[in-house]
Amino acid sequence: MTHQPYLYDQQALLGLLTPLLITQLQEKGLAWLQQQQAKALISEGFQQWNLTFVALPRHAGKQTVVLADDQLAAMARLVPGFTPRHWPADRLARAWWLLQWPAASQEAYVRSISTLFHTGSMEELTALYSCLPLLAWPESWVAQTAEGIRSNIGDVLEAIMLHNPYPARYLPVPAWNQLVLKAFFTGKPVVEITGLQERNNPDLQQMLHDYAAERKAAGRTVDPQLSLLASQVLL
């Protein structure tokens, strides 16, 4: 178990995100956010943190934030595999807000972030799962990630499955295998799964093999991407 909230330099990441966020916000939005920040930092409990997390899209907007390659590289140096290449501004703003969430107490942190998951809208869930690699107390989010893979909301699944380094690093084999299988079942571009080859395993290959056989027995097509992981699958 880890005994510090973050296993990466979260202040440095915050330092990279802050100027990005400023370019995305109108003057009014920036003033609002600074005010929310000041209020949250002196507040008791998490209500102020919750409300700001929920209301952020009103001020940040949904335009795609285009990041330069060197900006992406700098982020990936801090959090390996983290590449927010096509994020909307509100998701980036939510990431920035989450990085400041009080994290000293693991119990309080996990409880409050779990509340966000349990009451999340489609867009909030997408943001939260996209931010898994940034959350404090990283080992605490394994069950939540497995739960997210059970979702049938397309954007939520993509947020977990694609370009997200958290699952490959933290999920145990059974949950990882479910992630990959579900990506095939829901037609995701599996080559965009971070750690796809590194986490390949015999159990997964057996499942993919059976899956291909089942598809063929039903007279349905077999995804040619299956052969990336299970070379013995006959297409």
Partner: peptide
């Protein structure tokens, strides 16, 4: 109630 409200902004929206 909480789950119902969540479903209105989550699953049903999707």
């Amino acid at each position: 109630f909480k789950d119902y409200f969540s479903s209105l902004v989550g699953w049903e929206r999707f």
